[in-house]
Nucleic acid binder design. Structure first.
Lengths: 192, 192
DNA sequence: CCGCGCCGTCAACGGTGTTGACCACGGCGT
DNA sequence: ACGCCGTGGTCAACACCGTTGACGGCGCGG
């Protein structure tokens, strides 16, 4: 993760990893069949995070907390998150989170079918949001490494696109409250 | 896109492209500074699609149609979509879609701030959903190319995870209605 | 003490993106 | 008509990548 953090996502190579750990790059193949398998293992660690799944009495609050937790865990290593999100889902931590969230939704009185639909909607939203944030951070890292590229910082060509221009002031720079706002919007579909 | 479709995402190399077009691989560097820039150009084409933005009178229906359209365009070349979604957003077609959707939301009576929040929520949801679908298809393609890998077809370890097990029957195999269900859930936050 | 399994090392293979030198060609100014 | 020059394709090369197979040291069980 250190390699990815300072060198960008593309810097994560077996040779770089071997160099960092003072070990021959091919030694990892004694423990992982392929580089992708190694990435899956890292994904599991990242998705798990270091905090326990929230379990106060309030199911609604717990669910939101759990999703915020997932976002935080992934964004702790943003460039790694961008790498990981392109792998198919799976891993112990992933399924544990799914089970936990579904239990909370059932506890809120939703049928299994309703709970599943709402959970998937929430999950996909989180995925998309975190992916976007991770991409932005990864781009910033790449810019740091190779200064001279356009700063951009999200400047759509507002010219000729009036509705887009009107929205620009509300594109929050604080992505945490932006994330929370969207979460709130979706959670409205659940009973109080 | 043909290369990606039959060979998987990793098959898209300058040399493969040159081979397919009977041209020296390095010729592309006269037109694109880097492979990523070429991918951005392809992303623009893919996001634009081939249908015009929907503009019946019904703003709500138009918005849903536009997002369905985006999903369809991206999933027309699923393995390519998986490649593209990891690039930062941008491009003419991308901003045109954003402007169009924001205009529709404003037309539904939302304030610029509300419209922006709801649009971003919808967009992130679509992103996450399409990413998941694209990943699944890409994995299937890879399996076809190299038979013998586990079929999986989404088999979480239901053992010891009761709430997850209860949800499995409702994991729709028809991802189109799954997509629409989530869209509907989010759109409930908008006034009729 | 022998054998064997674990596991790090090394050289190598075929691939990758990208660069710089070279050069054919077609339009333009004189 | 001639020479110039920009456009753009070709070629060889560089550094790096993931992965494989043979080799060998080391420590443990019989």
């Amino acid at each position: 993760m250190e390699i990815v953090r300072i060198g960008g996502a593309d810097a994560f190579s077996m040779r770089a990893l071997g160099g960092r750990l003072d070990v021959d790059p091919t030694a990892f193949y004694r423990h992982f069949r392929t580089k992708n398998e190694l990435l899956d293992a890292l994904a599991d660690i990242l998705i798990e995070g270091d905090e326990p799944l929230p379990a106060t009495g309030d199911a609604r609050a717990d669910l939101r907390a759990s999703l915020h937790q997932l976002r935080r865990s992934l964004l702790r290593h943003p460039t790694m998150a961008a790498v990981i999100l392109r792998r198919p889902p799976g891993g112990r931590a992933y399924w544990a989170r799914a089970n936990h969230a579904l239990g909370l939704l059932r506890g809120m009185g939703l049928s299994p079918e309703e709970a599943t639909a709402l959970y998937q909607t929430l999950l996909f939203y989180c995925l998309g949001h975190v992916l976007s944030e991770a991409r932005a951070v990864a781009a910033a890292v790449a810019r740091d490494r190779r200064p001279g590229t356009p700063t951009s910082t999200f400047n759509p060509p507002a010219h000729q696109l009036p509705d887009l221009a009107a929205a620009v002031p509300f594109l929050r720079s604080d992505t945490l409250v932006q994330f929370d706002t969207g979460l709130d919007l979706i959670m409205r579909a659940a009973p109080a």
